[in-house]
């Protein structure tokens, strides 16, 4: 196991426990993620990976323990507040904004940051300028559009920009969801099985996006069932089994760890 100096840690998960009735979905898990690294989160089905993501992103409140970002406590905040702090996520089943085009979906993500803050009061900041169609607002709208196009080009899906989200294939939905998440310029990005259901080209595109995000200094947490891809893209790996963290280390170390092979990779190979 590698010890991580606290100073370089971005996201800190401390003794998080999540109990549903009598079931311990996550049992006293602690780890941290650093800027500019891809942290793989491995484990067989029901190991507690998605629950862990739910806790980090504020969807669920842990029974005990807490999560903090650069010393700022995230636990207890709402999902949108956690996102405003710089932690965003994707979902196992992509969430699409039906009724919007691809570009507009990205604009929503970009506008969410713009609408942040506390002064002036929300109606004067959001409702009034948008409804009155003020010149400033129109400029901002045009700027959003440009930035959205840049992001879509970066994700390699510029050609989809004007398509309705209802018309996307599954793989395209994943690519859009990732582009949308990157639009909020996250400090920490949680990806829940971003490769499942993709064709090889799309897999390459997603992996390229993940590597690019890492270069930009994002801490990427990656849950993925495709163990080969996960080990090749991750800088470091934590392994969960039945809610407990059973290993942590470099991909090569973890892959060779008999405990891990026993609990997880062994299952997969059989």
């Amino acid at each position: 196991m590698t010890a991580i100096p606290v100073a370089t840690a971005t996201l800190e998960v401390r003794s998080v426990t999540m109990r549903f009735g009598g079931v311990l979905a996550v049992d006293d898990v602690s780890f941290s993620a650093r800027t500019g690294e891809v942290l793989g989160v491995m484990g067989p089905n029901g190991a507690g990976k998605t629950t862990l993501f739910n806790v980090i992103s504020g969807v669920q409140r842990p029974t005990s323990g807490d999560v903090s970002l650069r010393g700022v406590r995230l636990t207890g905040r709402s999902v949108e507040d956690v996102a405003s702090c710089g932690v965003t996520r994707t979902f196992q089943t992509p969430v699409m904004f039906w009724g919007l085009t691809v570009r507009e979906s990205v604009e929503v993500a970009l506008a969410a940051r713009e609408f942040g803050g506390t002064y002036p009061p929300a109606p004067l900041r959001e409702l009034a300028p948008c409804g009155l169609g003020s010149p400033g607002r129109r400029h901002a709208q045009a700027a959003l559009r440009e930035r959205a196009d840049v992001l879509l080009a970066g994700a390699g899906i510029a050609a989809m920009a004007d398509r309705a989200t209802e018309s996307l294939a599954f793989g395209e939905e994943r690519l859009l969801e990732l582009a949308r998440a990157l639009a909020v310029e996250p400090t920490v990005l949680l990806l829940d099985e971003p490769l499942s259901g993709l064709n090889p080209d799309e897999v390459d595109a997603v992996i390229a996006s993940i590597r690019a995000a890492r270069t930009d200094g994002v801490a990427v947490l990656l849950v993925e069932h495709a163990v080969g891809e996960l080990l090749s893209v991750a800088d470091r790996v934590v392994v969960l089994d039945h809610g407990r963290m059973i290993a942590e280390g470099l991909p090569a170390q973890v892959a060779a760890d008999p405990v891990v092979i026993d609990a997880y990779i062994g299952d997969e190979l059989e």
Binding site: V79, A83, F97, G99, V108
Partner: peptide
């Protein structure tokens, strides 16, 4: 405007929109 689009995003997938802030 972004306001209306955010509303549409909320109606389509509230949690997904919240996760974007």
């Amino acid at each position: 405007s972004s306001f209306g689009r955010s509303l549409i995003a909320i109606s389509a997938g509230e949690l997904g929109a919240q996760a974007l802030g």
